[in-house]
Nucleic acid binder design. Sequence first.
RNA 1: GGUGACGUGGCCGAGUGGCUAGGCAAGGGUCUGCAAAACCCUGUACGGCGGUUCGAGUCCGCCCGUCACCUCCA
Length: 499
Amino acid sequence: MAKEFRIYNTLSNRTEALLPKKKDHLTFYSCGPTVYSYAHIGNFRSFLTADLILRTANAIGWDVTYATNITDVGHLTEDDLTDPSGEDRMVKALKSKEGEQFVNIWDLARHYTETLVEDWHRLNLREPTVRPRATEHMREQIAAVQKLMANGHAYETDKGVYFSVTSFPEYGKLSGNRLENELEQTVRDVVVDDDKHDPRDFALWKKDDKHLMQWFSPWGWGFPGWHIECSVMAMSYLGETIDLHAGGEDLIFPHHECEIAQSESLTGKPFATVWAHTRFLQVEGEKMSKRLGNFFTVRDLVAPESEGGKGIDPLAVRMTLFSGHYRKPFNFTMKTLKGNVRHRERLEEIIAMVGHPEEGTGDYAGETGTVLAGMYERALEAMLDDLNTPAALAQLFGGTKMILGKGDALDEQARAAARRWLSDMNALLGVVYYDDAPAPAEVEDPLAAQVEPLLQERAAARAAGNWGRADEIRDELSALGVDIKDAKDGTTWKRKQQI
RNA sequence: GGUGACGUGGCCGAGUGGCUAGGCAAGGGUCUGCAAAACCCUGUACGGCGGUUCGAGUCCGCCCGUCACCUCCA
């Protein structure tokens, strides 16, 4: 029986079945970041939505051709202008304190691309089929602009080439921003290109022979507009009409609206069947901003304390980012993160109890297996229903509780079923263990050298019934920032969470 | 001003007409030298006012409140 994958389509404002043009093969494009800084948790909430779509589609047996781009051209902060006085975010980053470490703008782009991919793997996001870069598709972008000019959808001024919005009557169908005068209502105190035909017209090419990144075109030296790269790369790898296009909610307008206008003017065909957008997250109840001090990059949270991070389990960060529905406002708080660190510890306990799925899984046999199979089915159903991640997590917690509750009473058949369940749940949600990439290398904790002798001394004291000394050592360890736990087969320790 | 979302128990967060969501916190208990962890038990909430219905958190209308986007943003 074929499963139906339902997802909210911004274009129709309805939740509808995702129907790949080619049976059981989804073509999917997700807008990636501009690489001018380390990616923050908000960026990753959006990438994570794409990852969950990929996992859910795979879980019902679909093949997915998944492209997510790297924008390594710094675009002007005022996108509709070709006036080079506007500031480029990558140039701005290069001139900043942080930017001093880079030889040039290309070096900066390379660095932030590499670190993006590192963070991507830390959060257990699966690799896309392709990860195209804007700078590597310059020829196609220029060709697309030429074609748009030839079609009468674009025109040239002294400052650049613009897309003519009036040439595409459906402009506004995605965002609802149809009115010409709305743009004029926005207060702006920047210089506008007076030669533009319509205030809504946006740049396809910007003439600028002073820019740090420039290419030669039929219009002289310059660089492409922001929107054209995604149109070109999506069509290059996925075809003229793609099944699903995703991104953050801020991209609805102007970015995706402009992509539609350009792409459909080029091909005369619908550009994407379904558009999915992830809502911004808030942090501690407010919009994330550096000024408010609630701005977190992934690295801030997951890097080891010795490297200035908080040393938080990356999979707990991942779990937190989807503990709210992707289409609702979500408030990321340290309290929620802390709760998910606990959930992750419980998952680790289960793996210690029933074994790692990589050691081999079984069928959903026996009574335990039947219950776990039902939990997986419900989790999958939840994900198929517009990525209902909180409901899917409830199933994960339910199974966790059951397995921990039965503990040593589980026989080998039940343990094998549990490993199968962990494997299936992980394939769907990616929070049990790293499945697509090797886990970040374990580093030797320098604290171990201090802790181990004390634990040995304490074990001796306990064996001798010297409880006073044993408790004293526990206090000493606590002062070092270490929590210990006595179990049947010895004492384990871990760092106290710093959050 | 335009457009779109949302308002659920102390907190977070599912739930589109009748059937226990779940988690965290809290209280009680089991276990343990003591801790910790784990496990068990305990909570009938849906912004307000009308309406539809045998029955509404769920549908309709109005009101109140919060948030987002409207050329920096994932």
